[in-house]
């Protein structure tokens, strides 16, 4: 979780210009005017949403228009994983739990397309069924984090004042714990079914979504169309629903995609620590962990699920990154 945290949490640098040459504001603009005061001519968070407004340099814009081959390959891979997860029971794969005792640690071949593990279970079948765990955990966790965290972030970025101070204080305290430490402690005392793991990971990711959503909201709330809506007499609720929300959802969703990759890795980590979903249910992390025992004689048992996990996380990063560049919010307010 921390790796992503920093990617989206650039600290306030004085020289923090981006690769596209857009200058970010030097620091969180805590003294920004309240959005309810349309006439105040205070400092505006300039530059933070240039890409949304399409003001980026022409060269950069040209690059952004097409998504390129890697983007589509990544999308296709993600679709395949999703299909595997949803239709695992219907797909023509073998049973993921039935051992084929004669063919232990078999190499990929006609009988077992991706070989077998140490108990002779079909690797392809286990990968397909394991995708279900990865997808369930990551989608649930990201959904919880995005909805709750996004809501809190928009509220605190829009209304500012005391709400913001209190929320951000709590969030900074939660972020003062290394994520995995918090997760371990909670898991130990609450239990570890698929549902519980998803819920806890989702709960723990709320703070970071709050920060992303808040930063985006701060930037959007300063923009001219929000002022226009206010001048025309729109109420808070209307401004929030019609002006702010649509502009915050996409950047937060792009972040959510990258965060999904982090959650998949987290499941793998938990499997390693013996804290993931109970055996013998196949999970990618569990497969890698089990395969470690046969590292010297049959490295492919570890290699194949590792590649699956790597490709999935890489694809999520690629797609998330491409979308993030498109809906760029340079996080000077994070």
């Amino acid at each position: 979780m921390d790796a992503v945290r920093q990617e989206f949490d650039p600290p306030p640098t004085a020289h923090g210009s981006t690769a596209q040459g857009e200058m970010t504001t030097p620091a969180p603009n805590l003294g920004a005017p309240h959005p309810g005061a349309p006439d105040s001519a205070g400092p505006v968070n300039g530059g933070a949403v240039t890409a949304v407004g399409g003001e980026a340099a022409p060269a950069a814009r040209k690059k952004k228009r097409g998504y390129g081959l890697t983007f589509w390959l990544a999308t296709i891979w993600l679709a395949v994983v999703l299909i595997c997860a949803v239709f695992a029971d219907l797909l023509p794969v073998q049973d993921p739990l039935t051992p084929d005792v004669i063919n232990k640690l078999a190499l990929p071949g006609p009988e077992h397309w991706l070989g077998t593990d140490g108990l002779g279970r079909d690797t392809l079948a286990r990968l397909v069924h394991g995708a279900r765990v990865s997808v369930t955990i990551s989608v649930t966790a990201v959904a919880i984090g995005m909805v709750v965290g996004g809501f809190l972030g928009i509220i605190s970025g829009f209304f500012r004042g005391k709400t913001e101070t209190i929320l951000m204080t709590i969030i900074n305290i939660i972020l003062a714990f290394p994520a995995l430490v918090l997760l371990l402690v909670l898991l130990a005392f609450v239990g570890r079914s698929l549902v519980v793991i998803s819920l806890i990971v989702g709960f723990l990711s709320i703070p970071i979504y709050t920060r992303v959503a808040r930063a985006t909201t701060l930037a959007v709330a300063e923009r001219e169309f929000v002022r226009a809506a206010r001048t025309m007499g729109a109420k808070n609720s209307r401004v929030l629903a019609r002006e702010i929300l649509p502009n915050v959802v996409l950047p937060v969703a792009a972040f959510g995609l990258v965060a999904m990759g982090v959650v998949i890795v987290l499941e793998g980590t938990l499997a390693f620590l013996g804290l993931s979903v109970q055996q013998p249910a196949p999970t990618w992390g569990g497969m890698i962990f089990d395969g470690k025992r046969y590292l010297s004689e049959a490295p492919h048992v570890v290699l194949i699920p590792s590649i699956a996990m790597f490709l999935t996380v890489l694809s999520l990063n690629l797609v998330g990154d491409a979308l993030r560049t498109r809906f760029d919010v340079r996080g000077s307010n994070l």
């Binding site: 979780m1 921390d2 790796a3 945290r5 920093q6 949490d9 650039p10 600290p11 640098t13 004085a14 020289h15 923090g16 714990f177 290394p178 994520a179 995995l180 430490v181 371990l184 980590t269 390693f272 620590l273």
Partner: peptide
């Protein structure tokens, strides 16, 4: 030097990832 400010801060934040990673 002027390019290393965010690097420093992030290195600090990343200590959390290292601590988490050290469990595994």
């Amino acid at each position: 030097r002027p390019s290393s400010f965010s690097l420093m801060t992030v290195a600090g934040v990343q200590v959390g990832a290292i601590i988490g990673g050290s469990v595994v």
